[in-house]
Design a protein around this nucleic acid. Structure first.
Length: 269
DNA sequence: AGATATTCCTGGAGGC
DNA sequence: TGCCTCCAGGAATATC
């Protein structure tokens, strides 16, 4: 289940094998993932040279000298496999470089996506156009601005990519726990002090996760998808009924917007 | 505006 | 052990 830190780790891994390389073969192995692959994806990228890899929110970005950027989203089961021994049924897009290195986008549940957009139009491209600031840099002021007047729960709104880009269910739960904020609180009614704590908690949680991914990556030196979650233990996520790591009260699970929320009823008022 | 449901999809977990 | 059902996840979309 890739969230922002996993995407960041993946991009850093891909950078090692793709940056500066010419793409000799770009071959979709089915017509779509979450949505159809861009028309002419293979032709448009074959022969292009990769000039930059980046990330925005949970989207990975691969710029080329053809003026197009390939945008990938890993959904919940997506991963890039580097130089696989053989192709499997869920390897949906194959790329071969001028060094004859093969990378494949593997995604069993096909919640991911691949798009191709002119690099100059990237910031206007639908999903990126309204994306909020990066969670690693979010400030209390930006949070306040975006949450002002909103009565929905803070948990639900933090999952909205227009409030903070790249947060998923896990890190929202973890950040709220760290900031001692009850996930059911109305977002617009949080005090400036709480918002400051929340902004700090988001930056910390994401920063630590990326750091953990980076250290894992050093061991593997490739985004082979075998990393799973970072070994770092979560304080509340997926720990229903287990003791809160801060106060030992049992962690509670509720459902908000159809998604599980884990929190400590004692630490998070 | 917000809450909830639905859709996409498959593997893993749990029940029997 | 082997079926069966259910659930997880992100994002778009529909409905109340």
């Amino acid at each position: 289940m890739p969230e922002l830190p996993e995407v960041e780790t993946t991009v850093r891994g891909l950078e090692k094998v793709l940056l500066g390389r010419e793409l000799r073969r770009v071959e979709p192995r089915r017509a779509d993932l979450r949505r159809a692959f861009p028309a002419g994806l293979g032709q448009r990228l074959t022969g292009a040279r990769v000039t930059r890899l980046g990330r925005r929110g949970k989207y990975g970005l691969i710029d080329t000298d053809r003026g197009d950027t390939m945008i990938f989203h890993l959904g919940m089961s997506g991963k890039w496999r580097i130089d696989p021994e053989e192709l499997g049924p869920h390897d949906h897009l194959l790329i071969e470089t001028d060094e004859h290195l093969v990378v494949v986008l593997n995604d069993p549940r096909r919640f991911g996506s691949v798009d191709l957009v002119p690099t100059t139009e990237l910031s206007d491209w639908g999903p990126l156009a309204e994306l909020a600031p990066e969670p690693g840099e979010i400030t209390a002021g930006e949070l306040r601005e975006r949450l002002r007047g909103r009565s929905a729960s803070i948990k639900s709104l933090l999952l909205d990519q227009r409030i903070v880009a790249g947060l998923g269910n896990i890190y929202v739960c973890e950040a709220l726990h760290r900031a001692h904020i009850n996930p059911k609180r109305s977002a617009g009614r949080l005090s400036p002090a709480s918002l400051a704590q929340l902004a700090g908690a988001i930056r910390e949680v994401i920063g630590e996760a990326i750091k953990a991914g980076g250290s894992t990556l050093r061991d593997y030196a490739r985004p082979d998808g075998e990393l799973g979650y970072f070994s770092k233990r979560f304080a509340v996520y997926d720990r229903e009924s287990q003791p809160c790591l801060s106060c030992e009260a049992p962690v509670r699970r509720i459902v908000q917007g159809g998604r599980s929320t884990f929190y400590c009823p004692k630490c998070q008022r």
